[in-house]
Amino acid sequence: MNGPPLRVLLVEDEALILMQLEALVEDAGHVVVGTAMRRDEAIGLAQALHPDLALVDLSLCEGGSGLDVAQTLRGMAGTMVVFVTANPMRLDDDLGGAAGVIAKPFTRAVVAGGMLYLEECLRRPPPVSLLPRGMRMAPEFRAS
């Protein structure tokens, strides 16, 4: 990995999946700066921490929507949003304002490959590694 690790915010309401994502993101050499299970918590943390990347579950605790989080974070410079969802088909081609989407159930390889791809997008675009097949990116982040 070239350059400093990505500072990552995780937004996921399932405790086990949150823990696994935390482990996988750290295994990929990045730093989890915060975790949130609820919409307001996620927005508050994002505004306080200004992470490089937020991995956001589309359906959050207490009926909160990850789409709201994405809308808010889109207005913040320097934070890329990637959805992690069991319903990637519900998103249209612009992915609800997110840069990408990782489909659940994800594998370790998809998260590892996805983190590499996202790091390239953020630190040294354009990305050169292959996008894992369990992941989709918005048009502007696709490798040429």
């Binding site: 399932e14 086990l16 696994q20 996988l24 069991a86 319903n87 159930p105 594998t107 370790r108």
Partner: peptide, 20 residues
């Protein structure tokens, strides 16, 4: 279907963390 996928993801999560 959604629940099956979520449960499979949770089983994978448990195994991932235990393996580490």
């Amino acid at each position: 279907d959604h629940r099956v996928k979520n449960n499979l993801q949770m089983i994978a999560s448990l195994l991932t963390m235990q393996t580490r």
